[in-house]
Structure formats: structure tokens, C-alpha cells
Design a protein around this nucleic acid. Structure first.
Lengths: 342, 342
DNA sequence: CTCAGCTATTGCATCGTTGCAAAAGGCGCA
DNA sequence: TGCGCCTTTTGCAACGATGCAATAGCTGAG
């Protein structure tokens, strides 16, 4: 009932604890006779190794944690799946943890009483926490950062080229002949840098096209959620001179924006074209389907996991910045039903 | 570097290991003088308790695991958020694990070398694994089941009343005057029972309305994903006498179905009304927005977590079947833009 | 001045497992 | 018959923390 231990099994089989351990682990040769006797005892007592004890002894757990702000943000859920796949390929196991983008929780995760010590390494997608904080807190556990960039080069980091991604998205809109291109999702005061990089890319595209940036068309949002995208779109549509296209900093904002447009009787893409970032499944099935810049999530996951495991086993190079590929997926929200749909 | 232990701190502060432990835990009184001296040593060495060792000694980890088939299915992601919230309220921590709905992985999770032993309890949302298997495998770790019903009453179980939910969804469609109501998502051969219960509710509604069930209008699907909903809808639209309404067994199927309808030029809800189950955020922002039967996820989470913790501390009643409330949210996909939108 | 009675501190054993090295048993060869 | 080698089996210590009970140190009462 309370779970049998090696000792119980050993007593029952009339052998030493160590021999039972050898049978369980299979690493050391055990005579056929004892092996069967021990095996029988194992079965009868339904022995399960106590992994906590094993991990303590071995000094590693075979588990890494993936820490994301919000699991119900589809991008993170989809990324999590890829991370799990990539990790399993190495014989490791992933546990997920959510911080809610709450700085307090992120700190708690890394602080004194940190759960982090139970894992061999962390894949961290930080939202609020800042660079120095991170560095001062994670000097024990191997860490690889996903997405958010941290300035000083003290961490391994995997992300897409946010400037290029934003630029390409905006250029796509310009290439369709749109001239008043808005942006939804800037976060000028956030500690995170992703939004700011996307704003840079957006500006680059406009400038290269010889257009001046209308600051009123850049709508900041606190976070990247659907309802904030809708709000931002309502704001834009109420302008004296509304835009004819919007670059949204992620797909959820875009979906909210499209919803607001629909409710206002504004047609997408005829009246206003919409493009997002993230390449989430939801965008494939929205009406209209969503044009998006899709990061290669599988590649991000593989790189991040590979790097983390290298850090864990000590074979890692010094901290690297890795850029993962991304790809513009053109769908109905910019080119209508005639386009490369689905 | 390798992480300092109580021993290191004790040596440095010139006190016993036990005293350091007392300072760290704060449970036993320590004189002001020693306390400051130990605290200084703790800070200098940046001591972090080894949670693995602590858990071994204490016999509990303060962590439970939530095991779901697929994290990128929005229902599970949203449920996970509620579970995390509910669990934190009790001072526990949740780790998420994904089985991919793969029976192999579910078994692995519960099998001999089970990770489960590292957690104080499991919230399990089984997909493939069957009743006897579950029982024979989890005799160690406290378990509460979510969603899928397991026949013999050997587990605590929390779910909505699937029959009633399906019946209400179907009745809603009938109440709008629809007479050829289809169903998407039956799984007559699955080990899981949820789909079968929903089919029962669907039939009940038709029968109570005095309609005969047209078996051709019940379209089974392997799983509950968007693309399968789209396929099923295409199939239905190709029938000689297509339906004027569809009850989809979850929101993803419904969203896929709506997408297929849009592509085929069939209007929702004018030509065909659509209702789903799950109440996921995505359905609020789709065009048209999706009518759905929404389980009270927060309530499910609270009940499940409360029950699990009771099982863990031994104060649990015998296994119970708990029905969580659900609610029909009427939106555009059944009543059009005139309805209780948003 | 002694002793009970309290508080602060400590040592030892223990949680369940595995690494290490020694012990025990079997066999061939001289 | 005796020695050494190889294989199987075992005992001990350790991973890092905490529960328990005993010790040391102090105060106040008789």
C-alpha cells in the first residue's frame, strides 16, 4: 500500500538490496536463478522505484521544465508540443509550468525556494523579468531562453529575427498596394524587447518604401490577447483617416482585430488587410483565414532543447544567440479568397 | 558553483547543520546572534535548498501533475489555467504533462518506471487507456479523473453531464426551427465514453421532439480536431439532402465545420446553424462567433483539485462522481448577428 | 547552593536509491 | 591439493535534507 522499497523486495526474495537494485537496473550481470526469484518478488510486491530517491542519488532527474507565460496562448501551446517532441528524442521528459506573465511568479520560480532545483534545466520564456534579475537568480540551473531577448550575452537564446519578420509582414502589405498600414502591439515601456523589435521592422519597411510613419497608426497594447486586438482595431477604425491594412504583432491580436472589423461591417481584406505573427492553427481556420509570419516552431524547439542538454552535460559552447527561420504564409486576410487559401 | 549544501553553510557559520536547517525553515527558535551569522553565511554561499533531498525526507513534493492528451487543444489549455489557479490557492504547484492521446505514453506515465512517483497526486484526463488498465496501474499514486468517465467506480471523477449538455445543444437548434440536425464527432468504437454520451443526448433531443434520427446525419470522427470537423462538414454538405443544423461534439470540430461551410459558400447560420461544446475563447472571436455549451472550467478545476488534495491527505470520501455545471452560450453561429453577440 | 524547568543547540538516524570496493563462490591450471 | 583469476553477490557510505531525542546552558525557586 505505502509503496514497497528495494528493502521489502530484498527481504522477500532473500537477497541483498543491492542485488535487487541490480536486477531492476539491469546494468550488472545477475545469475539466472536469482534474477527470476527477484523478478517474482518485484512483481508480487508491485515494486516501483522511488524516483525522488533515485534522483537524489544520481544527481539528475532526467526532466527539464518549460516555463511559459500563458499556456492558453496558442503559440505557447503549440511550441510546447514541439519542445516535448524534441525532448523525448533525447530520452528526457518535459514538465510545463506557467507564470502568467506575472513577474512575481517568475521570480518565485527562480528564487530561493525554487522548484527549479528539481529539474536538470530550464527552457524559459520570460515576460516581465529583466536581465540582471535573471542572471543573479539562475546561477545554478542551466537555462536557455526562448523568444524574449536578454541584452547582455549571458544566456543562450533562441528566437526568430523579429526585425526581419516584421519588415516582411509589412512589406507584404505594401506590396499589395496598401499605403496606410497600421501596427497593433507595440510595447514601448515593456521590459521585453520583442514588441520593440517588431516596431523597428515595421518602420524599416515603411521607410524603405519611401513612406513616412504616421505615429497615430501605431497602437500599443499591454499584452497580446484577442480582446486587445479588437479594441485596437476599433480605435483605428474610428480615426478620421482609417488605415487600409494592419500589421498585428501576433495572431491573437490579428484575430481580435478581424473580429472588430467584422462587427463594424468593415471587410477583410477588401477594406482592410490584416497580417499577424505566430502561425497558430487558429489562423488557418478563421474566416477569413489569417496571413501570418510563422516561426519554425519545430526548429526553435530542437535548437533550444539541443542547446539546453549540451549545457546540462557541460559540453556547451559559450552562450549563443540563435536565429530560427520564419516564413510568411499568405492567406485570405490579405489576398482574399483568390489567394493561396487554406 | 555546484550548489552549496547545509553542510557548507554550517561549516562557514561555525554552527551545526541542524541549526542552519532551523534558520532556513524558521520553525524552531534560533537566537538572534546565530540567526544573523547563519543568514550571512547563507547569503554569501547563495544557498538553495535541494528540493529533491527535502522531498525524499518529507515524503511529499508539494507538486501535482496535470496530465492531458494535447496541450494545443484549447480546451485543455484553458482548463490547465484553471487548475493551476485552483491549485495555487492550496499552496501546491502543478506541472503539466502531455500524452498526445497516445495509449503508449499514457501507460508509460503510469507504468513501472513512472514519473508519477515524483508527484503527490495526478489529475488525469485519459484518452485511450481503459478502466482495468488504469486501476491496475495506479494503485500507488492518488488520482482524480477529468472528463473521461471510467466505468467501475474506483476513481474520483469530475465532468459535466454530457448527455444533458448534448441534449440542450440539440434542443437549442430544434428550438430555432431546424429539422435536419446533424451530429459531428461520434466515436462508437473508442474506449472513451464522452462522445458516446453526447450521441445519446443528441438522440434524446430528437426523439423528444418527435423526430426520427437519420443515421446518415451522424458523422463519426477519429478525434476532435479542426480539420476533421471540416471534412465531416464537407461530407454533410455533399449529401442529397444536407442538414440545416449541426451539433459538433466540441468547438474545434465546429470551427472546422464553419470553415468548410464558408469555403463552400454555405452561410452560417442562415443556411446551416452550428453549435459546439467547450466554450473555448477561440469561439468568441470566430466569424460568426460560435454558439457553444460551456463547461464551468473553473468549477471543474476547483472540484478536481480539492478532491485530489483530500485523497492525498487521506481525508477523502470514497470515490465520487461529480457533475460540474455547464451553460449554453448563444452566439451568432445559431442566431446570427441579431443574437446575444460577442 | 542545588535542582527543577525551560530554551537554544546539537547528533544521530533516516528517507530509498546507487557507486565503490571488498567478499564469496566457482573454476582451471600447476 | 593449492593458488590465482574471474564472476556474482554483498556491505558500507553517500546524496542533502529533516524528525526525534538528548545535551548544554540559563533562569528562578526552594
Amino acid at each position: 500500500m505505502a509503496g514497497s522499497t528495494l528493502r521489502d523486495v530484498a527481504r522477500r526474495a532473500g537477497v541483498s538490496i543491492r542485488t535487487v537494485s541490480n536486477v531492476v537496473n539491469g546494468s550488472v550481470p545477475v545469475s539466472e536463478e536469482l534474477r527470476t526469484r527477484v523478478q517474482a518478488a518485484l512483481d508480487e510486491l508491485d515494486y516501483r522505484p522511488n524516483l525522488v530517491a533515485r534522483n537524489l542519488r544520481r544527481g539528475r532527474s532526467g526532466m527539464i521544465a518549460l516555463v511559459v507565460p500563458e499556456l492558453d496562448v496558442p503559440y505557447f501551446a503549440e511550441l510546447a508540443r514541439e519542445v516535448i517532441t524534441a525532448t523525448r528524442a533525447h530520452g528526457y521528459v518535459v514538465m510545463l509550468d506557467q507564470t502568467d506573465g506575472d513577474g512575481e511568479r517568475e521570480r518565485e520560480l527562480l528564487g530561493r525556494e525554487s522548484r527549479a532545483t528539481m529539474f536538470d534545466g530550464l527552457l524559459l520564456s520570460p515576460l516581465t523579468i529583466s536581465a540582471e534579475e535573471l542572471r543573479s537568480r539562475t546561477n545554478r540551473v542551466p537555462v536557455v531562453l526562448l523568444g524574449e531577448h536578454i541584452f547582455n550575452g549571458s544566456f543562450h537564446h533562441v528566437a526568430i529575427d523579429n526585425v526581419a519578420a516584421a519588415r516582411e509582414a509589412t512589406e507584404h502589405l505594401l506590396g499589395l498596394g496598401r499605403r496606410r498600414v497600421a501596427a497593433i502591439g507595440d510595447q514601448p515601456y515593456s521590459t521585453g524587447e520583442t514588441a520593440q523589435l517588431r516596431t523597428i521592422g515595421y518602420r524599416q519597411a515603411l521607410e524603405r518604401a519611401g513612406l513616412t510613419v504616421d505615429e497615430d497608426l501605431i497602437v500599443p497594447t499591454q499584452r497580446f490577447h484577442r480582446h486587445l486586438g479588437a479594441q485596437a482595431m476599433e480605435h483605428l477604425l474610428a480615426l478620421p483617416e482609417p488605415p487600409d491594412a494592419v500589421f498585428c504583432y501576433n495572431d491573437l491580436l490579428a484575430i481580435g482585430a478581424m473580429r472588430a472589423a467584422a462587427r463594424a461591417g468593415v471587410r477583410v481584406p477588401e477594406d482592410i488587410a490584416v497580417v499577424g505573427v505566430d502561425g497558430i492553427q487558429e489562423g488557418q481556420y478563421s474566416s477569413p483565414s489569417l496571413t501570418t509570419v510563422a516561426p519554425d516552431k519545430a526548429q526553435i524547439a530542437r535548437t533550444a532543447v539541443g542547446t539546453l542538454l549540451a549545457v546540462i552535460d557541460g559540453s556547451a559552447p559559450p552562450p549563443t544567440e540563435t536565429k530560427a527561420p520564419h516564413q510568411l504564409l499568405v492567406r485570405e486576410s490579405t489576398v482574399g479568397t483568390g489567394g493561396a487559401g487554406s
